[in-house]
């Protein structure tokens, strides 16, 4: 038995909320008029337009559609809303329909009976197919490395980085997941950082920037109807309070500080490799070596090339000034050659 309540929240917002009250299966429901005495337990709240308010609601078993004033069909992800033509002039307050809550588990923001948020877990799953990204914290800097998936020879090899981005003067990040989603978040992060700089004339502390982004990500796990961002970030940054810092954040809006961490495909094995190899107090150069070694083991092909990976470091120059540096193809190849991981073809090319 379907039960629906139709109410309009405020005139100014012009929204009718359609709420399914209690039902286990998906189905469809109908609100019908015709001055009949309301049957069933479905009602339309009376503070909507008088013409719509006069609709009575009912529970029906068959589909006498021509008799109906308002037809609602509810499926797992869509709602069909049909109004009797003669009532359309009165229905101009109806501009959109939203589900507030109490919806099937297909919606992002609802806990499943087992207490899980499936969409968030699906997002994590999506990320675990994306290229690997790792970050390692050294005593004098941080290294970020990411696997770039070359999909086609015909694809224009853009010079700009695809998985590593500069957030502001003292922070960069690596992306694992959907690049399109990441672009939105990165733009948000850059704006946040610049807004902080304008307000306080100081660069934003790393953790605060991470938290701003995570607040945004979290919002998409709680507020209705939207998909969470399918992106995990690894952040590398420096601030005067806590010096070099490495963070990881995922679609749920959780974040944490790490000494070495990874995201994306083969994340688990990368993580255990890092755990094995990580040395406290290693320097940036050692960290770079560790990064390529871990990448070479987690990536599908054992031989790497500058086309397949991206590399970036944050460090301090001799005067103590913090720099960040996205590596050029030549620098990456040189590093790979040093660790004997370069692809034969690429070394022959030279």
């Amino acid at each position: 038995m379907m039960k629906f309540g139709v109410s309009r929240k405020t005139i100014s917002r012009k929204i009718i909320y359609v709420r399914r009250r209690q039902s286990k299966a998906d189905g469809w429901g109908v609100c019908a008029g015709k001055n009949k005495t309301p049957r069933g337990r479905v009602s339309i709240k009376s503070n909507i337009h008088p013409a719509l308010a006069s609709l009575a609601t009912t529970t029906i078993e068959s589909e006498p559609q021509q008799e109906l004033d308002l037809l609602l069909t509810v499926g797992p992800s869509r709602l069909i809303f049909r109004l009797r033509p003669s009532l359309i002039p009165f229905a101009r307050h109806v501009s959109s329909i939203r589900f507030p809550s109490e919806l099937p588990r297909h919606y992002t923001t609802t806990f499943s009976p087992e207490g899980r948020l499936y969409q968030v877990e699906y997002a994590l799953e999506a990320i675990s197919h994306a290229g690997t990204a790792i970050g390692i914290l050294a005593k004098d800097g941080i290294v970020l490395a990411a696997e770039r998936k070359v999909t086609s020879k015909l694809l224009e090899q853009d010079t700009s980085a695809e998985k590593l981005y500069i957030l502001n003067d003292n922070m960069i990040c690596a992306v694992a997941g959907m690049t399109a989603d990441a672009n939105i978040l990165i733009n948000f992060a850059r704006q946040s950082a610049q807004r902080y700089l304008r307000t306080y004339n100081e660069d934003i502390p790393c953790e605060q920037l991470v938290r701003r982004l995570c607040d945004l990500k979290q919002g998409y796990t709680q507020h209705g109807g939207l998909r969470p961002f399918g992106v995990t970030f690894i952040y590398a940054g420096w601030d005067p309070q806590r010096q070099f810092q490495l963070y990881l954040s995922n679609p749920s809006g959780n974040y944490g500080g790490w000494k070495a961490t990874s995201a994306g495909a083969n994340n688990a094995s990368a993580q255990s490799l890092l755990k094995q190899d990580y040395k406290e107090n290693c320097n940036l150069k050692e960290a770079c070596g560790m990064a390529v070694k871990v990448l070479s083991k987690t990536m599908d092909s054992t031989k790497l090339s500058s086309q397949k990976i991206e590399f970036a470091t944050v460090g301090q120059d001799k005067s103590g000034k913090v720099y960040h540096h996205l590596w050029s193809a030549e620098e990456i190849d040189a590093l790979l050659a040093e660790h004997d991981l370069a692809k034969e073809t690429s070394s022959e090319d030279k």
Partner: peptide
């Protein structure tokens, strides 16, 4: 919120804003 104090310079620029 941030478990760290703003520096005088940061406050000054905030106030100015």
């Amino acid at each position: 919120r941030n478990e760290a104090d703003l520096s005088p310079s940061a406050i000054a620029h905030f106030v100015r804003g």
